[in-house]
Design a protein around this nucleic acid. Structure first.
Lengths: 230, 230
DNA sequence: AAGTTAAACGGACCTTGGTCCGGATCGCTA
DNA sequence: TAGCGATCCGGACCAAGGTCCGTTTAACTT
């Protein structure tokens, strides 16, 4: 159905991790690292835990949007520099806060039950993926929004790269002769937390409509018939 | 080809313009306002011009990314408060800098020659639209990037709304029984300056491939055959 | 021409993310 | 347990966007 584009893969800009604490990009694909820190000095690990706890508390209290780094530092009885050394920047801290949910979701994709996990046909998995993403975004929306990286890292943060990679894999199976990298960017754009926030919160679009929109989009992009609606 | 979704339009969040200078959102669709300011006091108009000139100079010198509001104020021999009163915020200033190009593009869409302007079938106009957008982004990329609004306004700035509205109109003609608002968001996502920057600058994807990707995407979304490649 | 008022001005001030480096700590080794 | 180097800590410091409010001035009225 499409022009036979060479599915040459897009060279991912080599992220220079030289100046980042291992902590910040636990693993490019977050696989294998059973737990967090491989080796942190005792005091560092203790402070890290206290910071996360303090941050979680402040988020629960004032909302993720109102979280300031100084407040976190103060609440953890720690210097501001410590927060930044550990998490790099504000986004890094928020990302760490989301890490648990993130890993759970990734696990569901990699080894959970079909159709989200392996075992179902790729198009079906795409449908399930989008629906799951939308629902997950609907919860956590505040946090996801606050964790939105600045323009530079919007497409290079570890979680985003993983999710995009997942979509690329499924698309390669579903539409082998398309430019799956670009198509994946398009699909992921639909699942952008900022867009979902805009539509659901500012425009009052019900989540159901977003899910239907996703299913329809996947059907169009893959050239398949949309599944019958229940 | 798609489930018959009710094309109920998405209620655009009523932008409260109460606290914004008319200047900032010259017109929701930027139609009709022959020139800029309807009524600015003489000194205000003079300062506005000086600020834009100064800003343009600084951008040419240090790049759009390095533009600071204080520098602009100083270069125009004006107080910092004046810059903010006139343009609202940094983004507003950058947007004003892009205003000329923006209007030209809008004019081309509304009354220029086909297929960009009216007269061609909608799918063909969509193809032309994306290609033109991509090329325009490729120039101006620095400015477009610097003018990227914060997360809140990413989908509500006047230029974006106009362009999205244009796409919605074309989609309504091309695929009347689809959820065109959501589809338009998807298509516009492909034309996001930040994405284009990521792909072209960070991943070294050639512009041609992006254009091919757009054409293919439009074909898939509208369920049409991709046009023959020259 | 003087008076009046709404608008514009300017720069001090605040906030917050992010940096820096001298000093304190940890954990290892002898 | 004393010594030592690598690691970590902390808070002063910086930059830059954005706000505030007392003062100035353009433009209209009489």
């Amino acid at each position: 159905m499409s022009a036979a584009l060479p599915p040459a893969s897009i060279p991912q800009e080599p992220i220079d991790r030289s100046d980042l604490r291992a902590d910040l990009q636990p693993d490019l694909l977050q696989l294998g690292t059973g737990e967090d820190e491989p080796c942190l000095r005792a005091d560092a690990a203790r402070n890290r835990a206290r910071l996360l706890e303090a941050a979680a508390g402040l988020v629960a209290e004032h909302g993720a949007a109102g979280l300031t780094m100084e407040a976190v530092a103060a609440a953890a009885s720690v210097g501001k520099g410590t927060v930044f050394r550990r998490f790099g920047d504000r986004t890094g801290l928020l990302l760490a806060l989301l890490d648990h949910s993130e890993r759970k979701f990734q696990a569901a994709l990699l080894s959970g039950p079909a159709p989200l996990g392996p075992g179902a046909p790729p198009v079906e998995r795409l449908h399930a993926f989008g629906r799951a993403m939308l629902r997950r975004l609907a919860d956590e929306l505040d946090l996801q929004l606050a964790a939105e990286p600045g323009a530079e890292r919007r497409f290079t943060s570890a979680p985003r790269r993983f999710l995009r990679g997942h979509v690329i894999l499924l698309l390669r199976q579903a539409v082998p002769d398309a430019d799956c990298e670009l198509l994946a960017h398009t699909l992921m754009g639909y699942l952008d937390p900022v867009l979902v926030h805009h539509l659901t919160r500012q425009c009052r679009v019900p989540l159901d409509r977003l899910e239907d929109g996703w299913v329809d989009l996947v059907a169009r992009v893959t050239g398949t018939e949309p599944p019958a609606e229940p």
